[in-house]
Design a protein around this nucleic acid. Structure first.
Lengths: 389, 389
DNA sequence: ATGAAAGCGCTAACAA
DNA sequence: TTGTTAGCGCTTTCAT
């Protein structure tokens, strides 16, 4: 067959011919007879089903089902026999079958904008830790900050008849919002990371507007008058945009200039922070303090300031956001806004589980708050600017 | 009913009484009749099924199924009518039903040790980007570096009849290994991040032993003789342990001291890097160069060195691992070993898809390699140590 | 190219 | 406490 070496068939998986006697069987069945296990079951044997366990234990299938799902509902004697049969046969439940029969699954999709931005990872980790513990599976989805992608993604995710749904943020397409409202009548839905919107069902997070306001006030209270806010990709990251807007409003309310706002393109990187600070200082050399949208940007700004011979905090105060490890690590250490993302994940997952257990939660909206961690990078009075405004 | 306020029932979700006429229906059916959609379908109407679409389009259910899965197999005319019906009815496929009927799902579990360690996140992101594109769903699992957890986790995951399986590393319990070998006969399985083991099916990554060797040789070639390696949690992180082992072997092969090995407890943090360097220098002040298990540790070591008045690289050379952004950002910039994690994720997912498409991959093992990125933190000859060995 | 029939493995309802 | 019955929505096979 050497002459066939370049034949396309050689690039494809060659399936062994099916025995004619078996050909009219469905694939899963056929695999059973042929001794191949597609999922679960003892190796080299046909997949073990609930029925097999039931037969082995000498009980009805439904009793096995119950013993596995609500052990308390089955007598201890039977339970023991069933557990033994499960172990002996290496039974693994078929989740698809149980989802179909029950009308819902133990899948919980978690939809976040991106994994590239490190804030969602601890959150995801926190959610996963709690849900995994309770036998739920996290299905991952990323929107890349696109509402249309979110809508499509969620649409597909609903096909799993999920136990609940966890969505980052409050900004959804109108069509999705309607869909979610209907969903929330039968399944818990938690919007997280953001409190600046009308909850569809449950909501856990903090107000990005409150953060913007708090940081603006914090600097203003300390006598700063030229206070800037810097971010990247705020046209997509609506939470960053809300921080910036509330920031500007708070400054305006105090009669301070509110137009030191810079939003750049590209990812939020240390290098980007340097570039943005350079751009900001070129336009507005009088700026005394900068609130950056995350700690990478802030660290980059710090390094750029040092390259320019600007002293931080004496010549320029910097504050980051997220309180990532890098904030405490650089010299001078960066002030930052701390949010417990992993804890938020825990809270979200716990709330979901409570709801699934049938409890009516205390509150539909949980504010997990934030705090301003003041470090060396803001530990000096504002530099005199010469103007008298 | 005020007197019932503290009754347990008030803490539970009160389900509306089921209409007796409906009570003998199954829950999913009942929801349909009651006008509630559990998954998919138009809001406020009963869930739309394939049958509904078929009826609307005036074709058989199977034709709709085909039109959705292999459009080419259906005539253009019918396809158009079907697509219109799908859109009009807002049909969302029930994945559980299709998984059950087909015997396998479009779920791909990705099992990683942890999300707390940032290296797995870009990988996961890369996998997700490719699989999402093709309509596959990533199911997330974390082992916390525990083989027993991995075995249990995978066991449960198999209940989804996944399209394939992606596992970090080559270190599995013997029982799981047997199970996976059986699985691999029907589903593609990719072990990733590590090449130091016998592949069960497919394998993508790089050799951590090769990394350890390469870094040891790199320092030795440049005249360093007291070369240390520092990590945390190597008893769990077997990849870090392999790097250390090969590192020591390479030094020994050159007649250099191979016992400057320090492994600490706790998470790999910047602060931890400082503590570990302090400990290392206390024990072995003669050390000239240190290879740290990641860039956070390396940055922490750098800051600790600076606190002690040690010049990097003149007094102490430092090299990190992963080439994270922080490595390039600190001053002096840290040398590091670069690995394209996101690209690895792409490669893994692509390989999986090829296999699912029936192709026989070129190779069962793909080495994605690594490179040593030399920066300022190693840019000086070794400090004289006075000894003559 | 399209359809009819069968059944994937499990669980809800009801009965015993 | 346990079993019987029916059926979840889809895809496979085989026939047309």
């Amino acid at each position: 067959m050497v002459w066939l070496r370049n034949h396309p068939r050689f690039d494809r998986h060659v399936r062994p011919p099916v025995h004619p006697r078996l050909s009219r069987l469905r694939p899963a069945l056929r695999a059973r007879v042929a001794g191949l296990s597609v999922s679960g079951g003892r190796v080299g044997k046909r997949p073990v089903t609930l029925k097999d366990v039931a037969a082995r234990a000498g009980v009805g299938a439904i009793t096995v089902s119950r013993a596995l799902r609500e052990p308390a509902a089955v007598s201890a004697a039977l339970r023991a026999r069933i557990e033994q049969a499960v172990a002996e046969l290496g039974y693994v439940a078929n989740h698809a079958a149980s989802s179909m029969a029950a009308g819902h699954s133990r899948i919980v999709p978690v939809v976040v904008p991106t994994l590239a931005h490190p804030v969602y990872v601890p959150f995801l980790d926190g959610v996963n830790a709690v849900l995994d513990e309770q036998g739920y599976q996290v299905l991952l989805g990323t929107t890349e900050y696109r509402q249309d992608r979110e809508a499509r993604l969620v649409e597909g995710l609903l096909g799993w008849a999920p136990a609940g749904l966890l969505l980052a943020g409050v900004d959804h397409t109108p069509a999705l919002r309607v869909r979610l409202q209907a969903l929330a009548r039968t399944r818990p839905l938690v919007e997280f990371m953001d409190l600046d919107g009308e909850p569809i069902d449950l909501m856990v997070g903090f107000s990005h507007r409150a953060v913007g306001r708090a940081v603006a006030d914090w600097f203003a209270d300390r006598g700063f008058r030229h206070i800037a806010i810097v971010s990247t990709g705020a046209e997509h990251d609506l939470r960053a945009a809300r921080r910036a807007q509330a920031f500007a409003e708070a400054l305006a309310a105090r009669g301070l200039r509110d137009d030191y706002i810079l939003d750049g393109q590209g990812p939020s990187s240390i290098a980007g922070g340097g570039r943005l600070l350079a751009e900001l200082l070129q336009r507005h050399p009088q700026v005394q303090a900068v609130f950056l949208a995350n700690d990478d940007l802030a660290a980059g700004a710090l390094f750029e300031a040092q390259r320019r011979g600007l002293r931080v905090p004496q010549d320029l105060a910097l504050m980051g956001f997220n309180d990532a490890p890098i904030a405490a690590a650089v010299v001078p250490a960066l002030s930052s806004v701390a949010v417990d993302r992993r804890g938020m994940g825990h809270t979200v997952a716990t709330l979901l589980l409570e709801r699934l257990a049938g409890a009516t939660p205390q509150a539909r909206v949980i504010d997990t708050g934030f705090s301003i961690v003041a470090r060396a990078s803001t530990d000096a009075p504002p530099r005199p600017t010469g103007d008298l405004t």
